[in-house]
Design a protein around this nucleic acid. Sequence first.
DNA 1: AAACGTAATTATGAATTCATAATTCAGTCA
DNA 2: TGACTGAATTATGAATTCATAATTACGTTT
Lengths: 227, 227
Amino acid sequence: MDLTLSVKRTTLHEELVERLRTMIVQDILKPGEKVPEKDLCARFDVSRTPLREALKVLASEGLVVLQPNRGARVSGVTQKEIEDTIPVLAALEHLVGELACKKLDHVGLAQIEKRHAAMVKAFQSADRQAYFRANQDIHNALLEAAGNEVLAAQHRVVAARVRRARFMANLSDERWIQAINEHEQIMDMLRVRDATGLAGILKRHMVNSLTAHLNAAKSEGSAEALA
Amino acid sequence: MDLTLSVKRTTLHEELVERLRTMIVQDILKPGEKVPEKDLCARFDVSRTPLREALKVLASEGLVVLQPNRGARVSGVTQKEIEDTIPVLAALEHLVGELACKKLDHVGLAQIEKRHAAMVKAFQSADRQAYFRANQDIHNALLEAAGNEVLAAQHRVVAARVRRARFMANLSDERWIQAINEHEQIMDMLRVRDATGLAGILKRHMVNSLTAHLNAAKSEGSAEALA
DNA sequence: AAACGTAATTATGAATTCATAATTCAGTCA
DNA sequence: TGACTGAATTATGAATTCATAATTACGTTT
């Protein structure tokens, strides 16, 4: 029994990293926007020290850009960055498929089946919010099933950069239908434990998803100032 | 012409991140060792503020572990971590091969040929130091040739954790010979621009390299306290 | 009126200070 | 002797202060 979990140990800067990361991914802090330390300190009621520590971490994750003596900006997501991210996340997803398939037991599969059902339901009632939540849950479950912490950590960091709410918003109906179909294939592969097949479809799923983002970003115009 | 590059802008914490990272990778700061802020502040002649910022970044890279109220320790590299890293770095290397092959021009190839020659020379004179340097140069050149910044960033972070000097030290003669042979194959693939072939050999090269590290770590005993 | 230069303001980088948790060490008692 | 208690010391987390770079505002000049 692990008692350490019962005593919640956390520091301000960790708290701030999480909250800021969430704000950036959820598009509450928008790309290109400057992040004035003073305002955020007031908002979170902390001093500048832990906030600045948090910004350094977020910078190393690529979510903000620090300009010496000129503060921090929320990093924009350029087309080039999405293009670069596609093969990387695709490769990571491929690996997730391979590993998850081998290690997933029937209990884990049941969990995912449940979440898959929830996702389909959300799709049928056209509830984007619920869909994205369920979708995230499934992919997180697969990542967890893979049982590879290095993979999980890298995946999280890379995915966070391109998983901005802004992109999610303009998911086309066509792509949505395609995504659901891909998820059906994912479930099929999981059920028969086809590692290679799962790896392949997860990779394609990721490529298709990011390509859709890329196109959305393109049509949206190149108003992505990274400064 | 980009004038911004001429004005060298840097901050203390960035400097410290680099220096500390180097010290950890070079095994000057040893795994499990505690990193007393006071000492390092004295050594670098800076205050605790930028040093602590640097530690937060290194923690997010996985090179140190922060224990709230109990300071920072250099993270140990467990067997599980190496095992987890193997498939991840292998996948990234595979991608490096694919991309680098497609984008490398004859100038870039000439550069790598030169470095390859230097590496072979170092091998022949059994100069481990020089060998590792040349080896690093080659792999960095390939990474750069791939022209994918997301890939480069992730590769650097993941590789840094397992690229401790300690592991490098116990490179067996057998493995060294094998590594050189693999490098010859890498050059062959580059010369004829066989992307698939290069991807394959780079992946195998990485798996073999890390497996050797893993075995070294095993035989070394499990004195890797992560605390 | 526009452009330039300079002063005032603001924001950031880093050092210092303060509060508190952890560790060490001495002393006590079994 | 060894284990426990509690004060003294040390180290860490966070706030504050200080110095300086960047931005803004203003006035001058053409």
